[in-house]
Computed example of a mutant assay.
Amino acid sequence: MLGNNCRYYPSCSEYSKIQFELNNPLKAFIVSIKRILTCNQLFKGGIDYPVIELNLKNIKYKKLPVKYWLIPLKKNKYYVIKAEV
């Protein structure tokens, strides 16, 4: 009815979806609620990629299609960017 009106990129729903796929449910719920509460005229908005904590040392790699790109932020923290297929 109102169209595409999210103040952030990626949209709040896409942000929440990524959080629930890659983080534990409690942390994903908290950061998703925080993001939704800041999606109003009092906040600037803009580009806000999800950040996840991940230890890549113990992961075994397989050939799979790329769904997300992980961009290093800090030690064991990564920005998550959705890969366009």
Score class of each variant (00 low, 15 high):
Met1Asn: 12
Met1Asp: 10
Met1Thr: 11
Gly3Leu: 04
Asn4Ser: 09
Asn5Arg: 15
Asn5Tyr: 12
Asn5His: 13
Asn5Trp: 06
Asn5Gln: 14
Cys6Ile: 06
Cys6Ala: 04
Cys6Gly: 01
Cys6Phe: 08
Arg7Glu: 03
Tyr8Met: 08
Tyr9Asn: 05
Tyr9Ala: 02
Pro10Ile: 05
Cys12Glu: 04
Cys12Phe: 07
Ser13Met: 02
Glu14Lys: 14
Glu14Gly: 01
Tyr15Ile: 08
Ser16Asn: 01
Ser16Tyr: 00
Ser16Glu: 07
Ser16Gly: 08
Lys17Gly: 03
Lys17Thr: 10
Lys17Met: 07
Ile18Pro: 00
Ile18Leu: 03
Gln19Asp: 11
Phe20Gln: 09
Phe20Asp: 01
Glu21His: 07
Glu21Thr: 01
Leu22Val: 10
Leu22Tyr: 06
Leu22Met: 13
Leu22Cys: 11
Asn23Lys: 13
Asn23Val: 02
Asn24Pro: 06
Pro25Glu: 08
Leu26Lys: 07
Leu26Glu: 06
Lys27Leu: 14
Lys27Gln: 14
Ala28Val: 10
Ala28Met: 14
Phe29Thr: 12
Phe29Tyr: 14
Phe29Glu: 09
Ile30Phe: 12
Val31Thr: 15
Ser32Trp: 00
Ile33Asp: 00
Lys34His: 15
Lys34Ile: 08
Lys34Cys: 12
Lys34Val: 09
Arg35Glu: 00
Arg35Trp: 04
Ile36Trp: 04
Ile36Pro: 00
Thr38Tyr: 09
Thr38Pro: 00
Thr38Asp: 06
Cys39Ala: 13
Cys39Thr: 08
Asn40Tyr: 06
Gln41Asp: 09
Leu42Gly: 05
Leu42Thr: 05
Leu42His: 11
Leu42Tyr: 13
Leu42Asn: 12
Phe43Leu: 00
Lys44Cys: 14
Gly45Thr: 07
Gly45Trp: 08
Gly45Tyr: 09
Ile47Tyr: 11
Tyr49Ala: 00
Pro50Ala: 03
Val51Tyr: 00
Val51Glu: 02
Glu53His: 15
Leu54Val: 13
Asn55Ala: 07
Asn55Thr: 06
Asn55Cys: 11
Asn55Met: 04
Asn55Lys: 09
Leu56Val: 02
Asn58Tyr: 13
Ile59Ala: 03
Lys60Gln: 06
Tyr61Arg: 06
Tyr61Trp: 07
Lys62His: 14
Lys62Gln: 13
Lys63Cys: 02
Leu64Glu: 13
Pro65Gln: 11
Pro65Thr: 09
Pro65Ala: 04
Pro65Phe: 10
Pro65Gly: 07
Val66Ser: 13
Val66Arg: 13
Lys67Glu: 12
Tyr68Asp: 08
Trp69Cys: 02
Leu70Met: 08
Ile71Arg: 15
Ile71Gln: 15
Ile71Val: 15
Pro72Phe: 02
Leu73Met: 15
Leu73Pro: 02
Leu73Cys: 11
Lys74Trp: 03
Lys74Met: 05
Lys74Cys: 04
Lys75Cys: 05
Asn76Thr: 15
Asn76Met: 15
Lys77His: 15
Lys77Thr: 15
Tyr78Val: 08
Tyr78Thr: 05
Tyr78Arg: 01
Tyr79Ser: 01
Tyr79Ala: 00
Val80Phe: 01
Val80Asn: 01
Ile81Ala: 08
Ile81Thr: 03
Lys82Tyr: 04
Ala83Lys: 15
Ala83His: 15
Ala83Asp: 06
Ala83Leu: 02
Glu84Gln: 12
Glu84Tyr: 12
Val85Lys: 13
Val85Tyr: 10
Val85Phe: 10
Val85Ile: 09
